[in-house]
Design a protein around this nucleic acid. Structure first.
Lengths: 356, 356
DNA sequence: GTAGGCGATTTGAACGTTCCAATTTCGGCC
DNA sequence: GGCCGAAATTGGAACGTTCAAATCGCCTAC
């Protein structure tokens, strides 16, 4: 049974005493090593190592009037899908490089969300925020701006086009990658399955759609297009309608991995072998894509995390805002659904099972 | 452009001055309201409200020698699946009720993980840990125990059977629920698709398997069983083999939602209408289940979060460990894959598309 | 020989909170 | 009116760190 003995951990004074210098010198060794003589430095460093000293985050935060933390809202109720989880993962991995840690929080479904933001700041729990699900009526950018609380958003803050504190994936470039890849693999016509424009953030839908329009136009491989909400049932129906206008050797580029999954189902229903007969490319690089062998445009979550953390770091340092937001290039991860040799396995792969 | 003006936020002294009491009295109003006269209390509370005062987490942490935070390791590289994300979500939601916040962290793939744990504690970033992916060779329980660092694990710490600082879902009860539900819906034989015992944590696999064995035995509906790794391709193959021994009106209970998805595919391949002809129940309550209309045994993540946070709270308070770990009952969420009326939609629902 | 300068190091104070001990206030009682 | 005990409130110190200013030691120049 563990006790809470909690013998006090080594402090800067312990190190100082053992190294026979003042606490301030130890502090300097850590924060401004060039201000201390080399021999002193090595002596202190040895002592730090010996006792396993680490500066107390709380004491530092108190002294600096800074929490050294970035808040991130998890929208738990909506489940979030795994895109949010992947972003949180990369933010977690990258945060230490920016000298901060992450503090996730969630609304308790009773208060308006800004209350939670306000509280976090007042309690000095965090210095800034990052969030991932901006939408047009979002009160947060305006509110944070008004209260001079630093933040960065993944996705352009729709309500404040003048802001530059955002990072976003370049959907246009992503769909260009998708179309180019499909053409390279020898697919003839590239159709598109996207989102309707009445969604919360039509900018994303437009961006990706435009990428498909431009890329297919310049390569002369344009085909029909359809739209569906981000829901599997709707996606299957929309994909089914789309496939009416397509034949073997054609392909569909999609605005999301979930929509692409809908295409896989609609194709399986028609007995089309995805990969060989029909190319399918999704968007997001989600777990779903990996699981189903879906070729997908992977969101550069690591770069996104770096951008977002860099933005809040600069804001906290008082540096001027950049000229523009960060538009990051996604990458294409080829997999079974564009593999014309049929050696890799896409799921659902109903026809291939039949052939065994 | 936002500046870092950061005008100082209200402190306890500001409140004290405005309410014409000492800072200590304000502190009492917050931490021991019964020690202060009612009229003074209301006066102080009004002032707290007016200036929007909140105690500084850093100052409190420094004074109490306690971070008020619980660390949670995210295993980013493995992607985690959404089970991990759901747990993190509920931990985030519930943490405030325990007076703590969450601090996620991840290994940077170079240090052994315990280094990261050690560092978090030394820096006073967290007081305790929660983790979610114990396995047999896991060094963490032993190490944390040895260093007297409080922790709670989701899943029994395999290496230390004597420990009680864990919460786990009752897989046996979950599969009993699944089998009972299938029988209630009129399915005749209930087969099982589980994990092989050479997995990292065979206890989970055994637990769920035993639940199926006992429940089918007592109801007299036992059928064949198979195993597959937690991977879609393998699951489809195992499910296909299993279906060789089943006919219309039978059902499959699975150890996870992903395995259940494999059954859906194998069934679709054979033209079986899932729900009507074949019952399928998954396990986890993952997003995948929701997306595919899968009847599933839902992990009680909220209860799990409460158990884990309660365990570390008690440990930090020096309370003795409980007699046993917390075994939590899951719940069954019925959906399309056990809906014999065929009114709801399961995906993949290839046959129903055909019939339209 | 001493003033001046420079780099290395130390001292003192403060960040906001709460514990502990000391002090004041209050109501009741003789 | 004065005294007692309990309740309410206050002052001082400390948690661990770092900033700003002061001090120390050493060297050079006059």
């Amino acid at each position: 049974m563990r006790s809470t003995s909690a013998r006090p951990r080594a402090t800067i004074r312990d190190v100082a005493q053992a190294a026979r210098v003042s606490p301030q010198t130890v502090s300097n060794v850590i924060n401004a090593p060039d201000r201390v003589r080399p021999d002193t430095r090595t002596r202190v460093l040895a002592e730090i190592e010996r006792v396993g000293y680490r500066p107390s985050t709380a004491a530092r935060g108190l002294r600096h009037q800074r929490a050294g933390a970035v808040g991130i809202e998890l929208n738990v109720s909506s489940g979030g899908g795994d895109v949010g989880a992947l972003l949180v993962g990369q933010l977690t991995v990258r945060a230490p490089s920016y000298g901060v840690h992450l503090v996730p929080f969630a609304d308790d479904e009773v208060f308006p969300m800004v209350e939670a933001y306000r509280d976090m700041v007042r309690r000095h729990l965090v210095d800034a925020f990052v969030f991932a699900d901006t939408h047009s009526g979002d009160p947060r950018p305006g509110w944070l701006l008004e209260h001079e609380i630093p933040f960065a958003s993944f996705g352009r803050p729709y309500s404040h086009p003048e802001l530059t504190c955002w990072a976003d994936v370049d959907g246009h470039a992503g769909l260009t990658l998708a179309v180019e890849h499909l053409v390279e693999r020898g697919f003839e016509t590239v159709a598109y399955l996207g989102w309707p424009l009445h969604l919360e953030d039509p900018a994303v839908a437009e961006d990706r759609h435009a990428g498909w329009v431009d890329a297919t136009a310049s390569l002369g491989v344009g085909g029909p297009s359809g739209t569906s909400d981000q829901e599997l049932g709707a996606a299957v129906r929309a994909a089914d309608a789309l496939l009416d206008e397509l034949g073997p050797g054609d392909a569909v580029a999609c605005a999301s991995d979930l929509l692409a999954l809908g295409v896989l189902y609609a194709a399986a229903h028609r007995g089309l072998v995805v990969g060989t007969d029909l190319g399918v490319v999704g968007f997001d690089g989600s777990l779903l894509a990996r699981r189903h062998g879906l070729t997908t445009v992977v969101q550069p979550f690591r770069d996104i995390a770096d951008s977002l953390l860099g933005i809040v770091r600069d804001q906290l340092a008082g540096r001027p805002s950049p000229q523009a937001g960060h538009l990051l290039r996604p990458a294409l991860a080829a997999s079974a659904t564009t593999d014309r040799t049929g050696t890799s396995t896409a799921y659902p792969q109903i026809p291939s099972l039949t052939r065994r």
